[in-house]
Design a protein around this nucleic acid. Structure first.
Length: 666
DNA sequence: TTTAGGG
DNA sequence: CCCTAAA
């Protein structure tokens, strides 16, 4: 099963500092195969945030060739919303040099913290999601593979925001100047091959016209993340970014492409612009172009800040790896707070996750504090613990189904409890906040999982301790997803929403489970050798990796052992044998009857035979219309009655005799 | 363990 | 079929 998480980021675009060359290493952030793709976004967001923070003020952008490019600031972005036609202006770099090292260090930090692997782009191996962040100073690529469907859905949702001010998505401004998560997002969507082949730039879903320069569609040449689109022609910096926006006029490849375009939020200009005016003062976000200085600042989104911008949320799911899943993916936009803190610029608001629980797709503006993140977790399925069922081969499929159902019911009948696992440890204190529990912490979030445990309360404590956790949902999931065999349960468990302080916290947690609709669990074994069937015995799933994480209390299982035996209706032949034996031995010698007629039928105990006789007598006394199940020949029933009468009398006689004897004794 | 009955 | 008191 898959656990889907939604993380909301605010980050949308950023201005690349002139001096930032750190990007030039063609370094690629690659996430481990088992990691969630979300990290890529985080990384991007972080980097972007760093860039922004470092260069709050307007910075000139240069392409690989050193040519000054148009710089885009948040403000410009804002303006652009209003006036799309307005071209961006190029600015000289006022600010001091930007230190490239910053970026690198950030990446390193991220890598350490998040287990990122930084590699050259080319090193990405199959099975891994590669997130090339910087191809080189001039060109950045982002490649992420994601499910198209998911993306589309996301895009669609984003689309709704298009009309709203500030909500417009832009993939980039001026060539190479601005790269956004969107770039990544888009790239992600397409398979690598497609990406590479596709040179066209994607437009925002909304009816947004790009100005001459198609600012929206442009990509940053210089640094940072550049969408592949730009790249297509030039692999790397070799290709100078096009200063002319026109050159980059986006091409629409298809609806799909368009849909994919992700809406990004714009950052509001920092409170203080270069000119010294607070940019955010303008509630309307009136666009202002500053030729010389543009402010790139991030604005905090929060009630207090009254962010004018609407946010768009990118949804990303950790399930990137498993495209086949068809799971909707959500992308995270915006860097974690953690990273934000490091920002130096005072005037700049840090990028942070969108607090609001508002659906990412909705594009609603979140009113929540910046510190709050909402994550949506969706457990699509879960795996059923192993069940061992012994059933005769002549049993019907229907009986098998019932048996399985009984076994499952026995396990789950008492209800389920949800357990939260963090790094394999159970979080027991329900009152803790996620932050307190450490879920918000990056380092600890790698593995967030859930367990579904049988509710012991209802189940009487049984005998042995050999139980295992009924259901354990491992978080790590990418792999499991792909290989889930599964047997899905009819009803997936849904975990609506888990708020988390940090979106990333949950990233690591991908829960997947399998569910198999099949009533017959894979584990079911049919014992052909023995005609007899035994009761169901749930086997602990401890041996399963996924399940092994946390041993659950063993008490739960007891009643499984005690599980009711499988119902095995007597066949006519059995009835015949029974009647015959009883006629000879009488009622009251069931052990002898058993040995005589059912010695080889291990699943028929003398109690069973006695019970059957009882029911036979009852059946014989009722009208045929009232009888159920396989009809018993009337002839047998007649024998049952006669025999019953005979032996009853005989027994009575004996009883009387005994009594009389007793009396005599007295 | 086996019986005998109620559930 | 289960559960159990009684034997």
């Amino acid at each position: 099963m898959v656990l889907q998480k939604r993380l909301d980021y605010e980050l949308i675009g950023y201005q690349v500092p002139k001096g930032s060359r750190s990007a030039r290493g063609k370094s690629v952030a690659r996430k481990k195969a088992d990691d969630n793709g979300m990290f890529a976004f985080e990384l991007l967001a972080t980097v972007a945030g760093k860039l922004l923070s470092e260069e709050e003020n307007d910075l000139p952008l240069t392409n690989c060739n050193g040519k000054t490019l148009h710089s885009i600031t948040k403000e410009s972005v804002k303006e652009e919303h209003k006036d799309e036609e307005k071209p961006l202006k190029t600015e000289p770099c006022d600010q001091g040099s930007c230190d490239e090292s910053i970026l690198i260090s950030d990446v390193d930090q991220l890598r350490q913290a998040q287990n990122f692997v930084v590699k050259n782009h080319g090193q990405t191996s199959s099975g891994e999601v590669s997130y090339p962040i910087f191809k080189n100073s001039c060109v950045g690529k982002s490649e992420i593979r994601a499910n198209d469907d998911a993306f589309d859905s996301y895009a669609g949702s984003a689309r709704g925001d298009c009309n709203e001010r500030h909500s417009r998505s832009f993939s980039g401004y001026h060539e190479g100047k601005v790269s956004t998560l969107r770039d990544l997002m888009e790239e992600d969507v397409k398979p690598p091959a497609l990406v590479s082949s596709d040179s066209s730039v994607e437009l925002p879903p909304c009816p947004v016209r790009t100005p001459e320069g198609d600012s929206f569609t442009k990509h940053v040449n210089n640094m940072g993340i550049v969408s592949r689109d730009d790249d297509e022609n030039s692999s790397g910096c070799t290709q100078p970014s096009k200063a002319n926006a026109k050159a980059y006029r986006p091409q629409r490849i298809g609806n799909k492409r368009i849909k994919r375009s992700v809406a990004y939020k714009y950052w509001k200009a920092p409170t203080i612009s270069k000119d010294g005016q607070p940019s955010n003062t303008d509630p309307d976000m009136k666009p202002v172009y500053r030729n010389k200085k543009m402010c790139c600042t991030r604005r905090r989104i929060g009630p207090q800040t009254c962010t004018p911008f609407k946010k768009r949320k990118l949804a990303g799911t950790s399930s990137f790896l498993t495209s086949e899943e068809g799971v909707s993916r959500e992308y995270i936009s915006g860097p974690p707070e953690k990273f934000i803190k490091g920002e130096t610029t005072g005037s700049v608001a840090s990028v942070h996750g969108v607090p609001g629980a508002s659906s990412s797709l909705s594009g609603q503006k979140s009113s929540t504090e910046s510190g709050e993140f909402h994550v949506k977790l969706n457990i699509k399925s879960f795996r059923v613990p192993e069940l061992f069922i012994e059933i005769p081969e002549d049993a019907t499929v229907g009986s098998l189904k019932r048996t399985v159902m009984e076994a499952v019911t026995a396990i789950l009948g008492g209800g389920l409890r949800v357990g939260v696992l963090l790094q394999g440890k159970k979080v027991r204190d329900d009152n803790k906040t996620l932050l307190q529990a450490g879920i918000s912490h990056h380092d600890k979030i790698d593995t967030l999982g859930f367990t579904l445990e049988p509710n012991t309360a209802h189940t009487p404590p049984p005998l042995e301790s050999s139980e295992e956790p009924a259901l354990l949902l491992p978080c790590d999931a990418p792999k499991p997803l792909s290989r889930l065999p599964a047997s899905p349960l009819p009803n997936p468990v849904d975990v609506p929403e888990l708020p988390s302080d940090h979106p990333l916290a949950i990233m690591g947690s991908l829960i997947e489970s399998d569910q198999d609709s099949a009533p017959t669990p894979p584990e079911v074994s049919l014992d052909k050798t023995s005609p007899n069937s035994q009761a169901l015995v749930p086997v602990p799933a401890m041996n399963v990796e996924a399940l092994a994480v946390v041993p659950l209390p063993r008490k739960l299982r007891r009643n499984e052992l005690v599980q009711r035996r499988i119902r095995r209706p007597f066949s006519v032949s059995e009835v015949e044998a029974l009647v015959q034996a009883v006629e000879k031995l009488g009622t009251g010698r069931w052990r002898d009857v058993k040995l005589r007629a059912f010695d080889n039928a291990k699943h028929r105990t003398y109690v069973d035979l006695k019970d059957k006789w009882k029911t036979l007598v009852h059946t014989a006394r009722i009208s045929p219309q009232q009888r159920r199940g396989e009809p018993v020949p009337q002839e047998l029933l007649d024998r049952v009655l006669s025999s019953h009468a005979y032996w009853s009398q005989h027994q009575a006689k004996l009883h009387v005799k005994q009594q009389s004897e007793a009396c005599l004794l007295l």
